[in-house]
Write a protein that binds this DNA or RNA. Structure first.
Lengths: 119, 119
DNA sequence: CTATGAACATTCTGTTCATTG
DNA sequence: CAATGAACAGAATGTTCATAG
């Protein structure tokens, strides 16, 4: 999905999909927890993703054939279902991570160039 | 315009407005030339702004009270008008540059953090 | 044909509403 | 109330059309 021509910076969606893959690799967290952790991590940079973008990212990874859903009872005495994820195709996941890295590096380069040239 | 809460990376519009200010500082170029120069500079990063975004950036700087328009005959024997720009308020321009720098730095930090954490 | 600009269309993302347990 | 998801709404940006010289 990191696309071809004329594009500016990496999109939020790809950024979040990357972290969703990472959370699944670490075998932890469902949607809301992922959001909370990301908010904590990136709040210092003024970025706090909202729940819709988190879910859209997860759903898109399913459509991509990278993740699959699995329901699970939540910890504790609450008996409330949450949705957790596993890899449907880990090779695809690794490939996607590689593509996003390329896009992140590209975006960094672009910003760095701007800072160098203007300031 | 670099805004407050929950936001992801800097927007293309702000990025281009920064360069439009820089071009006016250097006293050169009208819209199309600015676009061509930016395409040359950032093509290596896969970014080639289109003409609409260039004009929207210039127009917005006028609305902001930072630039003002001035028509001018094009060089050479072509007698075709082009639109060039001067500062309407250079203090405002400098302030805007400062704000965009903050936003660029913030965006770089965000991307760097992601690269560190994931790869 | 080149430069400018507006109109139109789509994509991306934020906000609100609905459902379930 | 917490989690998930869909619907709706707006903002950001790309594509196409219009006008002038």
């Amino acid at each position: 999905m990191p696309r071809g021509e004329g594009k500016f910076l990496i999109k939020q969606r790809a950024f979040l999909k990357l972290f969703m893959i990472r959370f699944v690799e670490e075998n932890k967290l469902y949607g809301m927890q992922a959001m909370d952790e990301l908010k904590m991590t990136f709040k210092q940079f003024g970025y706090e993703p909202n729940h819709s973008e988190i879910y859209r990212s997860l759903h898109e990874l399913i459509d991509d054939g990278i993740l699959k859903r699995q329901k699970k009872l939540q910890e504790g005495a609450k008996y409330k279902e949450v949705v957790i994820y596993q890899f449907a195709d880990y090779e695809k996941a690794k490939l996607y991570k590689k593509q996003v890295k390329t896009d992140l590096d590209r975006s960094m380069g672009l910003l760095r160039k701007a800072l160098e040239d203007v300031y």
